[in-house]
Design a protein around this nucleic acid. Structure first.
Lengths: 340, 340
DNA sequence: TTGTATGCGTTATCAC
DNA sequence: GTGATAACGCATACAA
């Protein structure tokens, strides 16, 4: 009677009348293999329903077939969209996705990640902003021998290790759209200091104003940290200004929702009294009222591409994945020409 | 010169002048061990910074130190909150989190999950609704020897394998609140057929009306599938009714946002012309305008508890984790007495 | 092209 | 209490 356990490489070898190594060669698609032998072994594999044991492979290869997402709690929607994108690519492969939040702030962050990577021996990791902007982290991955791909708002690494978006140009275009509508008094709610994305988006904002010859006093710039609450605070400050800005660009949608909240509390009409422009195009953007005009950050595509850079090209031919993704303006109802 | 690789159990054994097995005993906290030996070995472990290799352990134990989240794409926010809750518990432990979306619909769903569990040999899994309602899935986990905890809106399993919320009572209470405000003509946007959560929430809705002696014609019930769009469609249908309902309860926040959208498009004042009540208390609820009165589904606590049921009690004493969690009404601004 | 011997780092068996 | 030795399932070096 057959044991009820799952078949191992030994079972296959015995059934097929070959050695373990030959089976191993079939599994790993070794090129130097007699076609007949291969077919014979593959038949047995199929009949037995044999699947290589990942734990044993991990031990022997000193490498796990796991892809990690390492992030420090940026926007919840973003994390999820990244996961989805990666999972789309991983579906049907032998890879699994493991999620690893870390605390950028913490002085031991780098050591934490190192311990994680060394212990789990991940096949590769996707680094999310803002920690993806940390060069030391990338070097760490390299030195450990863990593949990595960084996601971010600017090209911080070579194309094999980076998927980036053109935030600066995209924001410039979006703010230019505001200007073309007639806005001259435009507020900015910027992202956290030290974030590359915040920097790029602010630069795009300034580019647009500069190109139009519009001055941009500091009073029209409010700090935020990408949260709804910080957007709310920033909105309070900006809408207290006299004269009030007729439009506000927010470095992400969540803060835009916060500004919108303030506007509503004050009975302001959006977009009549105030136009609001966001960034990200999370689901929130389309679900609030009025639907938010925003810049779509192609995070799903970026995540898919990142995953492909990691696991793709394993079948021999290197896949040429794009490493630059274009953010585009999504025009909805929160922007209109200034009144009167 | 020392090799640069990480120390293994052999290194520790050699340094400590004991056998591998003894080191193994120290690691696994074997009770029958000389205190002196233990101390000696532990000192060496600390000095060398030795950490057991998870891949080798997984192979030997036929069990991986991974916790899985198996879900079929329910609300994005929910997935994320669950992940966070679990990760809080896993932080600092030797466990990692792997995410596994599946396609309920698919005829091979059960086989997919089986293959996943058998191959990865997970330590345990958290099952999210609605697939957590599938008893066959639970039995499958059991038969494979994979621990599991189901999350859901009713007690579907014994406390060791279940964390549940009291949706029915919570909704009854919430709808009673609407009734006490003076509403008599209340619409319902229900969740997908076949979902236990949808059933429970609808039952709670009906309980409240029945207790108040209010009839509930079918015309006031609209179908939804927990998405914004379905909420929008349902809202269109309900707000076309004459007389128009003065309040609508939606089985989740996302659909409530959809209904709110319709109200806005028609220039209806919320809550003046229409009160809206949601369920979940996702971040969306507090971020839309007006802030949504909703029932808080304690998903984070439930997830933490689920994780603890899985990995807790490993140190000997079984932890007594609650398996029932109370949903509570969060009163915000989307509900008011009916006008006139 | 295929097989043999050995290693990967841990736990389990069963002596001592 | 502790240690030698054999699993665990696969891959690699080297030989045939």
């Amino acid at each position: 009677m057959k044991k009820s356990r799952q078949p191992t490489i030994n079972d296959v070898a015995r059934e097929a009348g070959v050695s373990k190594k030959t089976v191993s060669r079939v599994i790993n698609r070794s090129p130097l293999l007699n076609e007949e032998t291969r077919a014979k072994v593959e038949a047995v594999i199929a009949r037995l329903g044999y699947v290589p044991n990942p734990q044993a492979r991990a031990l022997a290869l000193r490498r796990n077939f796991l892809i990690g997402v390492v992030h420090d709690n940026p926007n919840a929607q973003t994390v999820l969209r990244v996961q989805r994108g990666i999972l789309e690519v991983l579906r049907g492969t032998e890879f699994e996705l493991v999620v690893r939040p870390v605390d950028r702030g913490s002085p031991t962050m780098l050591e934490d990640v190192r311990a994680f990577l060394e212990r789990q021996r991940l096949f590769g990791v996707v680094l999310l902003p803002p920690i993806s902007e940390n060069d030391a982290l990338a070097e760490l991955c390299d030195s450990i021998g863990c593949r990595y791909v960084r996601m971010g708002s600017a090209q911080l690494d070579d194309p094999d290790h980076m998927v980036a978006s053109n935030d600066r140009e995209a924001v410039k275009e979006a703010v230019t759209y505001l200007i073309e509508m007639g806005h001259r008094h435009i507020g900015l709610v910027q992202g956290p200091h030290g974030f590359r994305s915040a920097m790029e988006r602010r630069a795009g904002f300034e580019d647009a104003l500069e190109a139009a010859g519009i001055p941009h006093p500091k009073s029209l710039v409010a700090d935020g940290n990408y949260t709804f609450d910080s957007g709310f605070q920033a909105g309070v400050r900006l809408l207290d200004l006299l004269p009030r800005p007729t439009a506000i660009f927010c470095s992400n949608d969540e803060m835009a929702a916060g500004v919108l909240h303030v506007a509503r509390q004050r009975g302001l009409d959006v977009p009549g009294d105030l136009s609001i422009l966001g960034f990200d195009d999370t689901t929130l953007a389309a679900h609030i009222w009025p639907p938010l005009t925003t810049v779509r950050w192609p995070v799903s595509s970026m995540a898919r591409s990142a995953a492909l850079k990691l696991v793709g090209g394993l079948d021999g031919d290197a896949v040429e994945e794009p490493s630059m993704f274009l953010s585009t303006l999504i025009r909805r109802a929160s922007v209109a020409p200034p009144r009167g």
